[in-house]
Design a protein around this nucleic acid. Sequence first.
DNA 1: CGCCTCATTGACTAATCTCAAATGGAGTGG
DNA 2: CCACTCCATTTGAGATTAGTCAATGAGGCG
Lengths: 240, 240
Amino acid sequence: MHSLAALTRKLSAFAAVEPDLRLFSSLLPRPQVVAARQVLPLETEPRHRRAFLIEEGWALSYKVLPDGSRQVIDVAVAGDILGMRSLLLRSCDVDAVAVTPAVVVEISGEVLRRTIDLAPRLGAALLWAVSRDEGLVVERLVDIGRRSAAERVAHFMLELNQRLRLVGLADGDSFRCPLSQAVIADALGLTPIHLNRTLRELRSQGLFVCSQGQASIGDRARLADLAGFDPLYLDERSDA
Amino acid sequence: MHSLAALTRKLSAFAAVEPDLRLFSSLLPRPQVVAARQVLPLETEPRHRRAFLIEEGWALSYKVLPDGSRQVIDVAVAGDILGMRSLLLRSCDVDAVAVTPAVVVEISGEVLRRTIDLAPRLGAALLWAVSRDEGLVVERLVDIGRRSAAERVAHFMLELNQRLRLVGLADGDSFRCPLSQAVIADALGLTPIHLNRTLRELRSQGLFVCSQGQASIGDRARLADLAGFDPLYLDERSDA
DNA sequence: CGCCTCATTGACTAATCTCAAATGGAGTGG
DNA sequence: CCACTCCATTTGAGATTAGTCAATGAGGCG
């Protein structure tokens, strides 16, 4: 049996789904331990798709363009699900990979379909969770579309900090951040070089430091002001 | 009673939901006719949110940043729903507005909750539709994050054309496009000035023309090649 | 030690933005 | 029918941001 701890916590904000979660859990395969950099295959054969629930560790989904450049779409931590979209849609070309060693549970289309069928309410809750994660994509869209490099970085880091706090992986202004500059740059639509300079700039102003996988917000107020950050959209509570 | 024609068409790709749709329809208020530029209030009082189903016409949702710049998030045509996210989440600061005269149906949180409660399967289908629309946001993210101005425009227009074809609002390579350059620029993270130059460039190469609200793809093959466009993600069929 | 990857820096280039202004159509009131 | 205004579009010139190319450190690992 899985603990599904983080997921349970997430979904219970939406509805009372414990009994359904037991059913769901019974349909799932055993958790897998994966190494850092290991690919999480969202698609093996053309018609065979799957999603991954992240139980522990960090992972991300991304899309590679014909010219080889990469856009990171989601950064996922415990309780997040990667690839749900490609399970429901004939979405294309999205890949996922573990950033750190991680524990993941595969969710096949079959399992999801049976879950929606047997426990539609949990199905709705799962889709709601996905929808919530999409809120992050929207925020990233605004980030990349209309903010300068420094603003993007500031916003991204504040968001990350807030998300980690919500799942108990960060306490105050410091948090572990195993994302390389290349990954962050690909998430923010920047060059690693330019990201590096931007980080230097933030550092020199005492706003934010990030090195050796350890990140630290130096001046939350000024950073939030720079980013125009409003943590409201990360609120996990549902109004339902 | 509403026709919900476009929505029915969309959702039936996911599951057999006709009976549920009748229930849903009975919960909805009457359609409203709104003028171009009229705001669709996603949030009136702090705790009172709503979404809008677009029956006819064009509308869009956007987010305004502190500095006044705007990022367009969704462009919605018949059958699309705007603001679903803000209904489910405590999402913030997203506004919606009609681009053309339009017919819309308000969906209150109350109605959505009752729908999910009484017809969870339809609830799942609705959330699935939302998830599908989010695929568009992801695509926009890649667009803005990693493509040049010309590539963005090419991709956006091919996507729009494809979407309109799917709901019967475009036939071949020509389609009505009532979006002003300012709107398109805000959707693509560009300045109107730069968008204008980019459009000129595409025009001069015979790839794409857009004027007087009428758009036309001049050379689909080269345009798709430029954009790296793959219409797969727009496929409305579900695998479920 | 040699080979990674990641982070960092410099010098130069190219894409995009900003500011400013001209053009042109659509509607409006006289 | 003619000013006149309001927009959206178009163009120019110069400033700025971010990207490219190239190279050097620094740390981890077999």
